[in-house]
Simulated assay, not measured.
Amino acid sequence: MNPIDATYLPAGIRSRFVDDINGLRIHVLEAGFESTGRPCILLLHGFPELAYSWRKLMPLLAAAGYHVLAPDQRGYGRTTGWSADYDGDLGPFRLLNLVRDALGLVSAFGYRAVDAVVGHDYGSSVAAWCALVRPDVFCSVALMSAPFSGPPSLPLGTADRPAIAKLPDTIHHDLAALPRPREHYQWYYAKRQANGDMQHAPQGVHDFLRAYYHHKSADWAGNGPHRLQGWTATELAKLPTYYVMDLGQTMAATVAAEMPSAEAIASCAWLPDRELAFYAAEFARTGFQGGLQWYRCNTTGAFAAEYETWSGRSIDVPSVFISGRQDWGIYQRPGAIEAMQSAACTDLRGIHLIDGAGHWVQQEQPDEVARLLLAFVPQAAGR
């Protein structure tokens, strides 16, 4: 696998590989490499994205004096050493191993600590666990588009009074029983057929991603997020279909119904077709299963006991939350943003919702994201 052709990258960003990182050969985009001694910022992408998703933000952070690292995370892009076998071991994709990937990468670049770890979408969860588990290394954290509600709790006082058994979560049965039957996208993503549905979408990967990115952006007029009252079928059914799908519908068909017009595509400045073609070529080559494995780790609950090791712990390094104002990701898990404010992050310096941005905030509004980060990170690091 070769580095990314420089013609796809803004000036000041280089594509390279770092070997022997927790069993991986990690592909990294790097900016601010021209001089030594710079403080470091680590950027962690989500689904279905790549290190390339930070291309607009990286030069802005580098210009402010930072060494900026953005890897293709495990399961994505040009990083190799992982297996997307559906019947294989999910363990390498669990959150704590993704933290190990991040820790190994910054260590390989010679850093005992970085000024900030910034995560978007599922990368927000990885960034949160980086800050929770190794606050000595990840000195501040910026969570984007996905709030962190804290680690799972252990029951207290059960030695003499057994814990009340948890009732089974009926949400999937309840969603399917609605007059308009529905299915939660994360459980769809856990299905064997999900990767093929997207990698071999009838409209092709390019048009599938065009519709998917459009549907979750501020360009789609239907994105008007608001708080939901609870984890119930009737409340979750208020989410757009890219989160709570029509039962039996594939994701490719779901977003195809919202495919933008040729005029809208031509006027899409934040994701012109040439840049979208890079994503399409990468996902056509690798498929989506590497990223879908992350969702399967969550939906199976197989690693809950491991996460409970941090029961009662909070993120105590300085933190900030940034999202697009038109991003439903803020509210897709009812109560998460409230838990983040009240308990999960004890030094939360701000919640910033950027108008004119949906889910892809660092691509839709990179200048404003850079402004917010450059106001937060130096202050958090005491610089």
Rank of each mutant, 00 (worst) to 15 (best):
T7L: 03
F17E: 08
F17D: 08
I21T: 03
G23K: 06
R25Y: 05
V28P: 12
A31E: 01
T36P: 05
L42E: 03
G46N: 02
F47M: 01
Y52R: 02
Y52L: 08
L60Q: 14
A63H: 04
G65E: 05
G77W: 06
R78I: 04
T79C: 10
G88M: 10
P92A: 06
L98D: 01
V99H: 04
D101W: 01
S107I: 11
S107L: 14
G110W: 13
A113T: 10
V117A: 08
V117M: 06
H120I: 00
A128K: 08
A142H: 10
S145D: 11
S145A: 13
A146H: 06
D160C: 11
A165T: 14
K166A: 14
H172M: 13
D174H: 12
D174M: 04
D174Y: 09
A176M: 09
A176S: 12
A177S: 13
A177W: 13
R182W: 08
Q186S: 03
A194P: 00
M198W: 06
A201G: 05
V205S: 06
H206L: 12
H214A: 02
H215R: 14
A221N: 00
P225I: 00
R227Q: 10
R227F: 10
W231D: 07
A237F: 01
L239Y: 04
Q249S: 12
Q249M: 13
T254Y: 09
S261N: 07
C268A: 14
A269P: 00
D273I: 01
L276F: 13
A280N: 10
W294N: 00
C297A: 06
A302D: 12
A305T: 11
E308N: 04
T309N: 10
R313D: 11
D327A: 04
A343T: 12
I351F: 00
L353Q: 05
L353F: 06
A357T: 00
P366E: 10
R371S: 07
F376C: 02
V377E: 08
Q379R: 08
